[in-house]
């Protein structure tokens, strides 16, 4: 049984306008997403800004109330669970944010930050918590002396380690990593990625790894899902996706990666235009519409549910892009 199953999830936001602030349109940030995630597995999620990847992460942690669809965690439906029923679940689903400077309380010491999960969940006595905080710091590679210091006293990479320590404090099963290394320096990124890999191996964690850096996602993931305008357009094992991309958008994304090797310069098939707005998205295949593909009209009204074209390789079956 998979740890997390998401089915046809939709997260829409009302767009208010006019004198009475009535809802005049809806922003379909996540518009029918389905996938599952196994124990100890990493699912990478890539896409351009505004494609809905962060919203999807927040919906799964239930920081949002999904509009439709379902989220099952360990077989239990948490789509519309109340705060009270969610509280025990929250131990098992944690989140790491992009900017550790903004996601750590600047007025709390590292000890306060790391003790808080235990206090919220009413676990342990003060001396036990103190011991656990020391263990957590050790696990993420920070000295025990760090516990009395404040977040601003640390560098970006160290702050992200604090964020990671907080996420693993309650021994969760699933961590949503939302752009965990985008804000870090290149030489520090690989340290943090290695730490995440170590922790996954030691604790059997599952990751939903959200990032826009395709090489980073490939390195961290077992399977990768490509999102475009609120929908997954392709989902496949990491190596397969990069070697044998089937959807035109995946190909365009891979083509745009600047490879750190001057001998591999190439003429690119450049993607024109910008990501369209998720408010009133075009009907049919949104990417075919952006590319003004001659066969785009055929995709309107088609069932664009992902189809398995090779073992574990799913792609949106539109006539224009696949």
């Amino acid at each position: 049984m998979s740890l997390l199953t998401v089915q046809n999830l939709q997260q829409h936001f009302p767009v208010r306008g006019g004198l009475l602030r009535r809802s005049v349109a809806s922003c379909k940030a996540v518009d029918g997403v389905s996938f599952s995630l196994g124990e100890g597995e990493t699912l990478g999620l890539v896409g351009e800004s505004g494609c809905g990847k962060t919203t999807l992460g927040k919906a799964i942690v239930r920081l949002l109330n999904p509009t439709a669809g379902s989220i099952h965690f360990e077989g239990q439906d948490i789509t519309h669970a109340s705060m009270r029923t969610l509280r025990p679940m929250r131990r098992h689903i944690q989140m790491i944010f992009q900017d550790p400077a903004e996601s750590l309380n600047p007025r709390h010491t590292v000890r306060d930050i790391l003790e808080e999960p235990f206090i919220v969940q009413k676990i342990g006595t003060p001396p036990e918590r103190k011991k656990w905080v020391a263990e957590l710091l050790d696990k993420v590679g920070l000295s025990a002396a760090s516990s009395d210091r404040f977040p601003f006293e640390f560098s970006g990479g160290q702050r992200q380690r604090i964020g990671i320590a907080r996420a693993i404090a309650l021994k969760p099963k699933l961590i949503i990593c939302d752009e965990p290394v985008s804000a870090l320096d290149v030489s520090v990124q690989s340290q943090v990625l290695n730490l995440l890999l170590d922790l996954q191996r030691d604790m059997g964690l599952s990751y939903l790894f959200i990032a826009h850096g395709l090489n980073v996602v490939k390195h961290m993931s077992d399977r990768v899902a490509v999102m475009y305008l609120g929908k997954i357009v392709e989902l496949a094992p990491a190596t397969e996706l990069y070697q044998n991309p089937r959807h035109a958008y995946t190909k365009a994304l891979l083509d745009a990666i600047p490879i750190a090797d001057p001998t591999q310069r190439r003429e690119r098939q450049l993607l024109r235009g910008d990501v369209p707005s998720p408010i009133n998205p075009p009907p049919g295949c949104a990417f075919g519409h952006r590319m003004k593909h001659p066969k785009w009209e055929q995709s309107v009204g088609m069932d664009l549910t992902l189809k398995e074209i090779a073992p574990g390789h799913f792609v949106q079956p539109c006539p224009c892009c696949t």
Binding site: T42, L197, N215, H219
Partner: peptide, 18 residues
């Protein structure tokens, strides 16, 4: 140069870090 994850590297292996 060694610390950047490469597109042709083996997924989920340790990266060389500074």
């Amino acid at each position: 140069l060694e610390s950047i994850p490469r597109i042709d590297s083996m997924p989920k292996t340790q990266l060389k870090a500074i």
